[in-house]
Amino acid sequence: MNAVPRVLIIGYGEMGHAMEHLLAGRCDLQVWTRRPVPGHEPVDLAVAVSRATVILYCIPVTPLADVAQRVLPALLPESISLSIAKGLDGQGRPAARVLHDVYAGAHDFGVLYGPMISEEIRAGRRAFAQLAGSKPAVSDVASQLFADTGLSLQTSPDMTGISWASVLKNVYAMLFGAADELGLGDNVRGYLVVGCMDEMRTLVATMGGKSASAQGLAGLGDLVTTATSEASHHHALGRLLVRKQLDNISGEGVHTLAMLDRYQLVDFSGYPLLQLVDGIIREPVDIGARLLATIDSSTGS
Results as ranks from 00 to 15, higher is better:
1 M>A: 10
2 N>M: 04
4 V>N: 06
7 V>L: 05
8 L>M: 03
10 I>C: 07
11 G>A: 03
14 E>Q: 12
15 M>Y: 13
15 M>T: 01
19 M>I: 01
20 E>T: 06
22 L>Q: 05
24 A>T: 12
28 D>M: 01
28 D>N: 11
29 L>S: 08
30 Q>N: 02
31 V>F: 04
33 T>V: 00
35 R>E: 13
36 P>S: 02
38 P>A: 13
40 H>T: 00
40 H>R: 15
41 E>I: 00
41 E>S: 10
46 A>K: 08
47 V>T: 10
49 V>R: 08
53 T>R: 09
55 I>W: 01
55 I>S: 01
57 Y>L: 02
57 Y>R: 03
58 C>A: 15
59 I>L: 11
62 T>G: 00
63 P>Q: 03
67 V>C: 10
67 V>M: 14
68 A>W: 04
68 A>G: 03
69 Q>L: 11
70 R>P: 00
73 P>M: 03
74 A>Q: 02
78 E>C: 08
79 S>G: 06
79 S>W: 05
80 I>T: 02
82 L>M: 07
84 I>G: 13
85 A>L: 08
88 L>K: 07
89 D>R: 06
96 A>F: 09
99 L>F: 07
102 V>S: 09
107 H>Y: 15
108 D>V: 00
109 F>E: 04
110 G>W: 10
113 Y>M: 11
113 Y>R: 10
115 P>G: 13
116 M>N: 15
118 S>V: 03
119 E>P: 00
119 E>L: 06
120 E>C: 08
122 R>C: 12
122 R>P: 01
123 A>E: 13
125 R>G: 08
126 R>A: 14
127 A>W: 07
127 A>M: 05
129 A>N: 05
129 A>Y: 11
131 L>H: 14
132 A>E: 13
142 A>L: 10
143 S>V: 02
146 F>Y: 15
148 D>V: 00
148 D>Q: 15
148 D>E: 15
149 T>V: 09
153 L>G: 12
155 T>G: 06
156 S>V: 12
158 D>G: 07
159 M>V: 14
162 I>D: 04
170 N>S: 09
172 Y>V: 08
174 M>Q: 11
175 L>N: 10
177 G>A: 11
178 A>P: 06
183 G>M: 12
183 G>K: 13
184 L>M: 15
186 D>P: 00
187 N>C: 07
188 V>A: 14
188 V>F: 08
197 M>C: 10
197 M>Y: 11
198 D>F: 06
199 E>Y: 06
200 M>L: 08
200 M>V: 08
204 V>K: 11
204 V>S: 13
205 A>W: 05
210 K>M: 13
218 A>N: 07
222 D>T: 07
224 V>G: 07
226 T>E: 12
226 T>Y: 11
226 T>F: 12
227 A>T: 12
230 E>T: 12
230 E>H: 14
232 S>T: 04
233 H>L: 04
234 H>W: 08
239 R>W: 10
243 R>S: 12
245 Q>R: 14
246 L>Y: 05
248 N>Q: 14
250 S>Q: 15
250 S>T: 15
250 S>E: 14
252 E>I: 01
258 A>H: 12
263 Y>R: 04
275 Q>P: 00
277 V>F: 09
279 G>F: 01
280 I>N: 03
281 I>T: 03
284 P>T: 05
286 D>W: 01
291 L>Y: 11
291 L>R: 06
293 A>D: 14
294 T>Q: 11
294 T>N: 09
296 D>Y: 13
297 S>E: 12
300 G>F: 05
